[in-house]
Write a protein that binds this DNA or RNA. Structure first.
Lengths: 398, 398
DNA sequence: TTTAGTTTGTCTAGGCAGCATACAAACAAG
DNA sequence: CTTGTTTGTATGCTGCCTAGACAAACTAAA
């Protein structure tokens, strides 16, 4: 009733319908009142009421009774995001396949992990995915709750074109030119979405983690190699063919060290997880163990290596700060250990290599979301699609 | 009447009103027929007719008679973009101040250059701008045509926050923390917009030059230093505070060479215009003369230097390709001379340092627009604002 | 307990953008 | 001159949203 011009414009600037905007709010907040929706969107009470009835009829939300007290005026009625609409996340890795089910209200409904002794091929991985998902569907159907699956989100640890759904190159899995999306769609007869793992991690941290509320975010994820995700002005940087964000291959040194792609002097060649393991006398340990060892058993050798890696990471960060002028920089995976090892040194390196203007107000965080980070990101792939066009994903027509 | 879903969605995705979309088309095409507008936007003929009458009434366009022949059916009526609505571009540099007037239909109506023997301060520059523009306004008012100025676009060779309008640092001009937009707005009582020079060059090349039609573009401009502009998915990369695109400060080598900001091993430190001049025995020559000398008087020394610089430029380009996966890469300023010096070597360097996926379909061009490039970019700042909300910039109400 | 003030939900009428349809106008080709 | 094609114009309709009036549900004060 008061300020409506600004929020309306902001909401409309993204070009969505009001139905999508309201549904997005419900999904983001999990639970929200009608009056809050009015205030945020600038829509009138009558419009919000009408939109909510259609959303409830479509099964995306459910009405709850009047909420809060202790304030003057009639209490506003609330809506909850559905607990029954699900997205299934699928994460193939070298030595495991992880499948989770995430509800529209963010709860993890199901989680399972299949371990492998030796790497399996791409086609066998698809077979396993289909099997696990078929079993999961059967299990969910026997449940008391009437679940409904909106789609599948596949987390790909490698270069993937999210438009065509073809894995271009996944070095660790040793997949290449593999049309994973179409194969899965064919077998599962459900909408399937695919994206790079770092991109999904960034998406999740922005929605519910360290970068919540920020619109300009650079995310770097260290596993074996170093992957990246970038969001500018709230939207993901995809590039022409969808391969944008290969931050690990940035060359920052004239040195001769080679990375996994055989390129010299890159970030990935200078900042290596297995080097850290080696200097600590470890091999193939979990992230948790590596972090503890690195931070607590400091030797002259490990300190020297860590500082060398921190310097390289700092230079890369400074480069990216100059290029993107981000609001938030998120370090995930083993990069967070480096940051925690000596964050003062890290910031000194950045300060030395970035122009002052881009560092004003820039914040560096480590990832907040833990094991479910990628699954949440993958579920967002599915949910954002449903939010963009809720009527296509209708469940009950009533 | 046939396909309407797709273009509608595309046009609406940017969140503009139909009025803005149609006005944008008129501006982009300079002259266009009603039926073409229908085909591109997917709007119905009646809607287009209604929108056009309001745009003509607002003074943005004028009806022309029926055009083209040789086709079956009633010939479609055309509209021309106004020749009377102007944007004024202002370009302060170390040794000159250049002011141009660009009409809504793209024609350069006026152009003047004031030369300086020695650098003038920021405040004196503003005085000069006001003086030149006041004179220009007086001159335009005596003209036969009834011109009307929509706003001013200032081209800033340095770091500027386009939201606050404050020049953060312009190293060559030696300005810093200078609120140029507010000062000019105060003195001129017109809308004033400001942006970085490379960003405007990129904007112009995308609208009417080498990158026409592309949506994912990286642009590098070599003058004294190296500036950059990046557009992803059609919109400019601004970053948190608007300083994104400082591509020249990217560190790509462990060498000790310093750039203008005192940072080691950066692109700007390795690729220097004055080094090229020096090796050719020149000093302070024009771009044209430098290009002729570099390409035609090849000595072993100049070739060695050029190749060294091409290698650095190629590494930087590869880094940016990995990061952005652009569709088009534009080299402007003296960087285009390097490209022309040995473009095969340049491409070989890129191929060595970029991952194959991001190079598929990527094209490298030199800038096409000449002396008016920046003025056109600056005029776009003004015109895009007017296009976004035509009613606010109304001239005749009729 | 009563009263006043505040905030919210619901209903109705209406504005506005855009579409489909019908019809007239202006062209080419036979 | 007729036919077929394409475009401009006028009319009524639909869908989305708002404003305003009213009722409902709460707090705070008398």
């Amino acid at each position: 009733m008061t300020s409506k011009a600004t929020p309306m414009f902001e909401a409309r600037a993204s070009g969505q319908s009001s139905l999508s905007i309201v549904l997005g709010l419900i999904h983001e907040h999990r639970a929200i009142t009608r009056s809050e929706i009015c205030a945020i969107t600038g829509l009138s009470r009558s419009t919000v009421a009408k939109l909510l009835t259609t959303l409830v009829n479509l099964g995306f939300a459910s009405d709850t009774g009047a909420e809060q007290i202790d304030r003057v005026g009639r209490p506003s009625m609330g809506v909850d995001a559905s607990k029954e609409l699900l997205a299934i996340s699928v994460h193939p890795e070298v030595d495991y396949l992880e499948v989770k089910a995430v509800a529209f209200n963010g709860t993890i409904v199901h989680s399972e992990k299949r371990l492998y002794d030796e790497p399996i091929g791409a086609h066998q991985a698809v077979e396993d995915m289909v099997q696990v998902i078929d079993n999961l569907v059967a299990e969910l159907e026997t449940s008391d709750t009437s679940y409904r699956i909106l789609g599948i989100g596949v987390i790909v640890p490698g270069q993937i074109n999210s438009s065509t759904g073809i894995v271009r190159q996944a070095p660790h899995l040793q997949w290449s030119e593999f049309p994973i999306r179409d194969l899965l769609t064919q077998r599962l007869s459900m909408p399937v979405f695919v994206a790079n793992d770092a991109s999904l991690g960034c998406k999740a941290e922005m929605a519910y983690g360290a970068a919540k509320g920020a619109t300009d975010v650079v995310y770097m994820h260290g596993t074996s190699g170093i992957g990246g995700g970038v969001f500018m002005n709230g939207t993901e940087l995809k590039g022409f063919r969808g391969y944008a964000g290969e931050l690990g291959h940035m060359r920052i040194s004239s040195g001769k060290e080679l990375d996994y792609s055989g390129i010299q002097g890159t970030l990935e060649a200078l900042v290596r997880r297995d080097d850290l393991e080696a200097v600590l006398g470890l091999k193939n340990v979990s992230d948790e163990d590596l972090e503890v060892a690195l931070l607590n058993n400091r030797t002259p050798e490990s300190t020297a290596l860590a500082r060398k890696q921190i310097e390289a990471l700092g230079i890369a960060t400074a480069n990216l700060a100059n290029i993107f002028n981000p609001e938030v920089f998120v370090l995930a995976g083993f990069l967070r250990f480096l940051y925690r090892f000596d964050q003062n040194y890290f910031h000194r390196v950045i300060k030395k290599h970035a122009i002052p203007a881009v560092l004003e107000g820039m914040q560096v965080f480590v990832n907040e979301l833990g094991a479910n980070s990628l699954a949440i990101g993958a579920s967002e792939l599915v949910f954002q699609e449903a939010i963009a066009d809720p009527t296509r994903y209708a469940t009950r027509v009533k």
